[in-house]
Amino acid sequence: MEHMTLCIDISKCTACRACQVACKNWNQLKAEQTQNRGTHENPPDLSANTWNRIVFMETRLADGKIDWAFFNDRCRHCEDPRCMEGAESLPEAIVRDDSGAVIFTEKTRELDFDDVASSCPYGIPRKDDVSGRIVKCTLCVDRITHGLKPACVQACSTGSLNFGPRKEMLRFVEARVKALGAEANVYPDPMEDYNTLWILPLNSKHYPLAQAMPIPRRHRMAKTRMPMAVGVAALAAAGLMHFRERGLHDPHRKQGETNR
């Protein structure tokens, strides 16, 4: 199948959360017993039953203006998926599809969850205690391989979620960033390494990704896998980012002046 990419234009998101509901509907994921924790954001974290969610962040800027960002968090579908490192004991458990989707197969049951979870710099994988599988966004591989858009994209009414052939999407991203002005940028960086891309209209410090460090680029062309020790060292180098991004998933996040 053609190489595809999903692009999230933050400037068009209204936090209606149709994407969250559509994901649960298509993938038949259970609702969670949530509570209002003083924010509209819910469920509080990604989970075995929540594969994408909108993170809300509000700040009063120095000039009194309000900055209110909605960030749709989910799997980045890396070109060179770090989570596959955690599956080295059973390489076929996590596969990268031609479409660009990184897929956790049923064989993830046999993997050590901590290995997989700790290898992902974005804190995405979750253990489904019912099935025993490790789960996350599939890029709706069961839809896209039949010519459909992912369920979340189908449900998005504002054009915030976009999906298409990779080359087309990269052109789209560049055009949108240009249109949105000097501060606009693409996350993650460099965009060539990911199949889920975010268009950020403002500097990334305005989003719950503040000061994210770029992940050291791996050389996919050199097919040799890094020895484990090097991998760990690379992770350590990316430690700050790892920590920050995992901070996204802290259910005890403080609300208030900076409602992260």
């Binding site: 959360r17 969250q20 509901v21 649960k24 509907n25 259970k30 609702a31 969670e32 017993q33 949530t34 509570q35 209002n36 003083g38 509209h40 819910n42 469920p43 208030g256 002046e257």
Partner: peptide
């Protein structure tokens, strides 16, 4: 509808900081 209830699970009052 559980998918909607989990998104807005209850009564809140918005107040200024």
């Amino acid at each position: 509808q559980p998918w909607l209830a989990e998104l807005e699970p209850g009564m809140f009052v918005e107040i200024s900081s």
